[in-house]
C-alpha cells in the first residue's frame, strides 16, 4: 500500500510542471488556421502570450454558459453573431467599445448596436461542383428558385438548423425574402432535393467538393476557401438576394486577464491583424473599413444583400419558433 501512495505522490509531481502563466485565453470560433495564426502575430505586436481553444460558435456559447461562475476565457473571437448576442443578453460577455469603433463598417456597427464588436461579415450562397451538375445535365442554378428543380434530387446539401447557425441564417433569409408561408413552401420543395442536412455549417461545401453532392448551401467565403485549396468548386450568389452573418468579438465578463484581453481586442481590430485572415484562407470581409478586401473574397458590393433584421431574427424565441416549425413541418416529410 505504501507503493500505492508513492505512486499517487509521483503522479501529483508530474502535474507540478503544468502551471498557468500570464496570458490571454482565447475562445476562437472561426477557421482553425486563422486561430493558429493569431498567437504568434499578437505576441510579436504586444509581447503577450496567447493560448486558444477552437470551438464552433454554438459550442463556444455552451462552454461560456457552463463556466459562467468562474470564467476561463478572456476573449471570444469570431463566430456568427447570434450566439454573441445571446451571450451579451445573458450577461456572459460585456460590451467594450474599442478605440477603432468609428473605423468599423457603419453598416455592421449599426446592425449590432452596442452588444458585441463586429469582426467580419460574409454572405450566404451556393457552393457548386460543376462537374457533378454536368454529369446530371443540369445548368448551374443562379437563384433560390432554381434549387427546387426536380433534376437536382439528392444533389443538394445544407446544414441542419437544429445544429448549425448557418442553416438558421438561411431559413431566416428565406423568410425575409419571401415571407414566412412562401418560405416554408419553398423549404418543403427544397427538402425533396436535399441529400442530407449536415451538423456543421462548413460540411456541405466539403461534400460538394468531394462529389457526394453537387450543391452546398452555406457561407460563400468558406466555398472560396475550399476552392483555393483545390476542390473543384465555384461560388454563386442567389439572384433574389441573400442574407449574411456578422462575426463577433466579445470581452468575457469576469475575464481573468481583463487588461490583456482589452489589448487583444484593440489589436484584433487593426488592419494589420485583420489582414492575417486572408493569408490563411479566411475570405470574410473584415470589419475595419481600412482593411483591404482580398481579391479572392466574394465582393459584397456586387452581391444583392437583403436588409437582414438582426434584432428580430437574432432573438432566441423567434429562432426557436422557426427552427421547430422547420423540424415539425419540413424535416419529417418523406423524400
Amino acid at each position: 500500500m505504501r507503493r500505492l501512495f508513492l505512486g499517487v505522490a509521483l503522479s501529483l509531481l508530474l502535474f507540478a510542471g503544468i502551471g498557468n502563466a500570464q496570458r490571454v485565453n482565447l475562445l476562437c470560433s472561426p477557421d482553425l488556421a486563422w486561430c493558429e495564426a493569431l498567437g504568434p502575430a499578437f505576441k510579436a505586436a504586444t509581447g503577450i502570450d496567447l493560448e486558444f481553444i477552437r470551438l464552433g460558435s454554438s459550442e463556444a456559447l455552451a462552454r461560456l454558459r457552463a463556466e459562467a461562475a468562474n470564467p476561463v476565457f478572456d476573449v471570444w473571437f469570431g463566430g456568427t453573431g447570434d450566439p454573441h448576442l445571446a451571450a451579451f443578453n445573458e450577461g456572459l460577455t460585456e460590451f467594450y467599445k474599442p478605440s477603432s469603433w468609428d473605423d468599423l463598417l457603419p453598416s455592421l456597427t449599426k446592425s449590432v448596436g452596442e452588444t458585441y464588436i463586429p469582426l467580419y461579415t460574409g454572405a450566404l450562397g451556393f457552393v457548386i461542383n460543376e462537374g457533378i451538375l454536368a454529369e446530371h445535365g443540369v445548368a448551374t442554378p443562379q437563384c433560390w428558385a432554381d434549387m427546387t428543380n426536380p433534376a437536382l434530387k439528392n444533389l443538394i446539401a445544407m446544414p441542419d438548423p437544429n445544429a448549425s447557425g448557418t442553416a438558421y441564417t438561411a431559413i431566416a433569409t428565406l423568410v425575409q425574402i419571401m415571407g414566412e408561408d412562401a418560405a416554408f413552401e419553398y423549404l418543403a420543395a427544397l427538402h425533396q432535393n436535399v441529400q442530407q442536412y449536415t451538423r456543421s455549417g462548413a460540411a456541405p461545401g466539403q461534400l460538394a467538393g468531394r462529389g457526394d453532392v453537387a450543391i452546398a448551401i452555406q457561407f460563400m467565403h468558406d466555398g472560396v476557401k475550399f476552392a483555393e485549396e483545390g476542390f473543384p468548386l465555384t461560388v454563386v450568389a442567389p439572384c433574389e438576394g441573400t442574407g449574411f452573418e456578422i462575426g463577433g468579438l466579445s470581452l468575457v465578463k469576469g475575464a481573468p486577464e481583463r487588461d490583456a484581453a482589452i489589448k487583444f481586442i484593440e489589436w484584433a481590430l487593426t488592419p494589420e491583424a485583420q489582414m492575417i485572415a486572408a493569408t490563411v484562407g479566411s475570405y470574410q470581409v473584415q470589419s475595419n473599413s481600412k482593411t483591404p478586401v482580398p481579391a479572392a473574397a466574394p465582393d459584397l458590393d456586387t452581391i444583392k444583400l437583403i436588409d437582414y433584421d438582426f434584432a428580430k431574427y437574432g432573438d432566441p424565441a423567434e429562432r426557436d419558433r422557426l427552427v421547430s416549425k422547420w423540424t415539425n413541418e419540413i424535416f419529417p416529410q418523406p423524400r
Binding site: L61, A62, D160, A163, G165, Q196, R199, P316
Partner: peptide
C-alpha cells in the same frame, strides 16, 4: 450519420447548438 438523429449526437446538438 447523414441527417438521421442519434441519441448521443442529440445530446451534443442540444448542448452545443440549441443551447
Amino acid at each position: 450519420g447523414g441527417d438521421r438523429n442519434y441519441l448521443a449526437t442529440e445530446v451534443f446538438s442540444a448542448f452545443a447548438a440549441r443551447f
